[in-house]
Design a protein around this nucleic acid. Sequence first.
DNA 1: ATGTCCGTTTGCATCGTTGTACGATCGTGA
DNA 2: TCACGATCGTACAACGATGCAAACGGACAT
Lengths: 336, 336
Amino acid sequence: MAATLHDVADLAGVSFKTVSNVVNGHPHVRPATREKVERAIAELDYRPNLTARGLRKGRTGAIALAVPELNLSYFAELASFVIAAAERSGLVTLVEQTGGDRDRELALLRSPRLRMTDGLILSPLGMRQEDADALDVPFPLVLLGEPVFDWPSDHVSMRNAEAARAATEYLIASGRRRIAVIGEYEDEVFGSARARLRGYREALEAHGIGYDGRIVAHATLWHRADGARAMRELLDRGAPFDAVFGFNDTLALGAMRVLQEAGLRVPEDVAVLGFDDLDEAAYAIPSLTTVDPGREWIGRTAVETLLERIGGGRDAAPATRLADFSIVERESAPRG
Amino acid sequence: MAATLHDVADLAGVSFKTVSNVVNGHPHVRPATREKVERAIAELDYRPNLTARGLRKGRTGAIALAVPELNLSYFAELASFVIAAAERSGLVTLVEQTGGDRDRELALLRSPRLRMTDGLILSPLGMRQEDADALDVPFPLVLLGEPVFDWPSDHVSMRNAEAARAATEYLIASGRRRIAVIGEYEDEVFGSARARLRGYREALEAHGIGYDGRIVAHATLWHRADGARAMRELLDRGAPFDAVFGFNDTLALGAMRVLQEAGLRVPEDVAVLGFDDLDEAAYAIPSLTTVDPGREWIGRTAVETLLERIGGGRDAAPATRLADFSIVERESAPRG
DNA sequence: ATGTCCGTTTGCATCGTTGTACGATCGTGA
DNA sequence: TCACGATCGTACAACGATGCAAACGGACAT
């Protein structure tokens, strides 16, 4: 169907190898020949078969990105950055969704679906420490998220605990004392939720505020609906709070919606602080104070790290790279 | 590095083709042999090289999806559905971002980047009628969006004009007469913006309401920031309006934010109606009345259509498939 | 005229897999 | 014991490209 090197060669009256040389910009090709070949290429609308090239070269020029769901805005924005960074390096990106499900994450690592790519950027959510062996894969792998696996692999993440601590201290500095949390996730032994909870507790402790489990609400996947549900639960429990720290923006936004349905004013009655600095956060009503986790840097760095691993040493020591964060002040939680 | 059929064959003491037969579930393999081979596969952690398989079979098992940006929630949610549908069919999805840029869309259609995939689902935004020739590509192609290209290709879309008309009539029925629009896009001769504007005008006309260009605001890419900018422009122009129809939800949400900054109440002073029914719309404050365009159906159907084209006739007549829409009533624009 | 050299072009093997055609082996019935 | 299907396994040739090494041809020096 589609034209091959041979077809072009026949038309141009040269050997197919010469066509290959032209296509690859090989230096020693006579201008006249080159032009002849290029005309034939144009006429037949020849495009190299990347599958064949990939087989021969051992590199496909594609990488895979696996995230829980593109529905979650954080991952959509992250994917956007990863794809853009990959494109700048001439790579295409294949996107997988794991649903944050442990089995699907494990299956992905073992399946041959990825044998078409040169490497994987994985944002694990359901895996546990005991699954660390599964990370011993025969292709380059970069992990996103809190690096607590006991396995030597490349990580790109942010200072989750420090950021959560800073966010909590921000709320404390603004005069809040009863700070509720949404997004705790007890099963997740290694992830961001755990690290953020740790940061939260450190901040409380540093300021002599006791930890009260009644104002800490659970959420597994971090959709708006989960934030809303968690907030209803907090309200039902009846323990008072004057601020809410959502472990991500969608949780915070879902919670903010329920607060306002309940007739509570944000920030007067309850301050709300999120995490991620989604585009959406700046346009919410009220606009959402949140932690900017350096998403763009994370996406870009993940691709760079993967590329280093693909290109160079299999055996260079695995690195952990951490993004800088900052707190973005907006209406939902004004600075003190 | 990674194990091949040959390695497995050596270990199992059979020919490499027998291993291939086992891997492919070929019927006539003695159970004893099969088991021997499977043990060797497990021991070597063999995974078929999909690149080689793709070359041999002429199918790679991957499709490409090209959207303007994953940053735009509509496309993120659409991509999520497409990837999920593809996965159910055993396909992986490669995601490209065009930025809605004409040149990049054209480049994508011509580049060899896609020769690694079995087909493409493209959501064009910058291309124009004169570029229709570029759609004559040597691989299966399904277009998303308003089907106005004068070129026979498969299309999956929705009834943009009807939906916009229904939305406008909804606002009219609720008592609004001065209905502003955000998202008009004059350069786009074929796309959703044009069709939605047509539906809007039809509704006005049907109810004897004059079209007033002063309350129609332009936007190219449909981010929240564009909606906010457009709303500021509308307010500056000073022409009165009692409703705003955003051509998508992010535009509407950006506009709603600016309305409230300007001290206008939604929906009392100005009703707001969006388009897309993003997850976000239900949690906005106030929640956003919007058009549900059947995104999930669109994503699923696009994959199905592409698969039919890949599998079967190159020459079956191109089909246009349209999703059903519905209007979701929420707080920002209550029914009359 | 011949040999050398360099720029240019070509042929062959190869990447890991599957399809086709055929050869080997087994169990069965005469 | 032998012939014969049925069953199982193997050899070989692709798929379309690249890397290597050798062949070609003309220009130049000798």
